[in-house]
């Protein structure tokens, strides 16, 4: 057990799985970097933010494959390799680039098993960075997990901490279905205790990071951290919150969400993705349908505005849901009282 960053946790998960299973390979743009350069330096980048650094040295060029900037071909190749005996982990760099290869994910990998009558296995992991907070603007900052969650056949993982990232990534690599694994790039330097041994965290099992009586907060990815912070602040004022980290948006642990909402009667959902048809709307619909009688207040969603992610820091800070906004939403539902009939 030692302190590891989100980046190190992911690197270690990849390394341990590549050691365990020779069929696990890595591919993507600059996952090593440096091939064809004039300096002769190999593993020049180890991923654009250094997440895969050092893997080339240990596993060689046959298993750590740099690709051309050519998402349709290599994401499709990853799907094809997965269907024919390998267990590829393909890195899409920024999830926004899915625009260049959505067919290979949505129409190919996700559909094989169903449309081939259950005969295909596609053990593919696609890793990609998501999230605002990096001044990377509209084409490098989106939180697109709802897009993938919408597609049957895909599993979607949104880890909220280094411990979660390692266990969920190893689970993803060992899973026989296509998995989209989304890493919030603002979190790469977050640190916490992470076991040195390999371990797995099952999909579809939410984690309760706080347990309280008054309000349930469902949050995804980096928003879990914000929700915890808000819950700790609110606890000082006597408002106790349950914070649910669903870990995976597909499958979604609807049982835990409904149980917690039944206990607290109040629900706030924090989702960094664009507000229309996102996970917040999905969870809100679930609770409205299945736990309506338990609700003591309207459901509140804390989401960005329905705009592209802006560039300027001041605007970006306004865009991303904040601890303060979460706190305000919780206070609003906690103090909500049904109006008496006149």
């Amino acid at each position: 057990m030692s302190k590891k960053s989100f980046r190190q946790a992911i690197n270690e998960a990849l390394r341990q799985e590549m050691r365990r299973d020779p069929r696990v390979i890595l591919m993507g743009e600059d996952v090593a970097g440096g091939r064809g350069g004039t300096s002769g330096v190999k593993d020049a980048w180890g991923g654009v933010l250094g997440v895969t650094k050092g893997l080339l040295t240990e596993f060689g060029e046959d298993r750590v494959l740099d690709t051309p900037i050519s998402e349709a071909s290599y994401i499709g190749a990853a799907a094809g390799a997965a269907a024919t005996g390998l267990r590829p982990v393909a890195e899409l760099m920024f999830v926004d680039f899915v625009g260049c290869c959505l067919d290979q994910i949505m129409n190919q990998a996700a559909k094989f098993r169903y449309m081939f009558g259950g005969k295909a296995r596609t053990p593919l992991v696609i890793r990609a960075m998501y999230g605002a907070g990096f001044n990377a603007a509209a084409q490098h900052s989106q939180a697109l997990y709802p897009l993938f969650t919408h597609i049957p056949g895909l599993k979607v993982v949104v880890p909220s901490s280094p411990y979660e990232a390692k266990g969920l990534l190893i689970e993803a690599i060992r899973d026989d279905d296509p998995v989209i694994f989304l890493e919030n790039k603002v979190m790469y330097d977050d640190e916490e205790d992470v076991p040195d041994d390999p371990y797995t965290i099952p999909f579809g099992e939410a984690n309760l990071t706080r347990e309280g009586d008054d309000v349930t907060i469902v949050a995804f990815g980096r928003m879990v951290k914000f929700a915890n912070e808000a819950a700790d602040r609110l606890a000082k004022d006597g408002i106790s919150c349950t914070v649910i980290d669903p870990r995976t948006t597909s499958p979604l642990d609807t049982g835990t969400i409904l149980d917690c909402v039944t206990d607290t009667g109040r629900l706030v959902i924090v989702d960094e993705s664009s507000p229309r048809c996102n996970l917040a709307t999905d969870v809100a619909a679930l609770v409205a349908e299945e736990a309506f009688d338990a609700l003591k207040a309207p459901i509140r969603r804390v989401c960005p505005p329905h705009t592209p992610v802006p560039f300027a820091t001041v605007l970006e800070n306004l865009y991303v849901p904040s601890v303060e906004k979460i706190e305000a939403a919780v206070r609003a539902v906690a103090s909500y009282r049904v109006k008496e009939e006149a």
Binding site: L65, Y74, G76, A79, G80, A83
Partner: peptide, 12 residues
């Protein structure tokens, strides 16, 4: 749809 998949199969 097929050519990218075949790159993967060939890689396998």
């Amino acid at each position: 749809g097929g050519p990218p998949l075949i790159c993967g199969a060939a890689l396998s």
